[in-house]
Design a binder for these strands. Structure first.
Length: 220
DNA sequence: GGCCAGGACACCA
DNA sequence: TGGTGTCATGGC
């Protein structure tokens, strides 16, 4: 365990939570809703996703079985606001089809697997890449994996904590290798990064009011 | 009116 | 393995 990095990462967390407060993520009521949101928010702002989820909720489609029954065309029309709607409709269908076929539709049992087999199985499903898989593991399965997204990458590289060239897995290891695996802590940490990205990292490489600005990198 | 968002996949060299 | 094109809406 890298002590210097651990101290740095804990300090970052405390600065963010002091500035922004707890985020209480993921904004969803059920594991299935988390999964739907994780797919719909791919390269898309959450505001657009919220509309789509609202339409699915109206039609009582935030469930595996119901989603399995609706046609691809109808589903695509309902999630139109989230962008890439044809692709995302296919992805939602692929997920539902997978759990339906391989787990007899038992989502809870599917999510109850150990982290690594669950990750590999998620990654084998069309439309689920590294970030979406980790979001599902952390927020739907409630298992400790660190979610890396564009904001995580941007914040960490711009502050000089990591190289810009780091791959997804390397950046995840950067956090997981220094922090105790703790579901609530990882959930809040990722949410704080996203909030920080929204609040401080829009269009400007540096932002003077960011609680992380000028944070020393000597600990690394 | 342009830019960008809580990515992933296909195709090519 | 890495680089590039494609998917697409809505908010700012």
């Amino acid at each position: 365990m890298n002590r210097g990095r651990r101290e740095l990462l804990r300090e970052i967390y405390h600065r963010l939570i002091a500035a922004l407060g707890p985020q209480h993520w993921w904004p969803a009521d059920t594991p299935m809703e988390v999964i739907i949101g994780a797919i719909l928010t791919q390269n898309t702002s959450w505001k657009n996703v919220k509309q789509a989820i609202g339409r699915l909720r109206e039609k009582n489609l935030l469930h595996l079985e119901e989603l399995n029954r609706v046609s691809l065309q109808e589903l695509a029309a309902l999630i139109r606001s989230s962008g890439y709607y044809n692709q995302k409709a296919r992805k939602l269908k692929a997920f539902c089809d997978h759990v339906g076929t391989h787990w007899n539709g038992n989502l809870a049992r599917f999510l109850a697997q150990e982290i690594e087999p669950l990750r590999q199985e998620l990654l084998s499903i069309f439309g689920i890449g590294q970030e979406t898989a980790d979001s599902i593991i952390l927020y739907a399965a409630h298992k400790p994996t660190f979610v890396v997204d564009a904001y995580t990458h941007r914040i960490c590289s711009r502050h000089g904590w990591v190289s810009e060239e780091l791959t997804y897995g390397e950046l995840r290891d950067f956090f997981e290798g220094a922090l105790e695996p703790d579901v609530r802590f990882f959930q809040e940490y990722h949410a704080l990064f996203v909030r920080t990205g929204h609040a401080y990292c829009r269009r400007t490489p540096q932002c003077a009011s960011c609680p992380l600005d000028s944070y020393p990198v000597y600990l690394l």
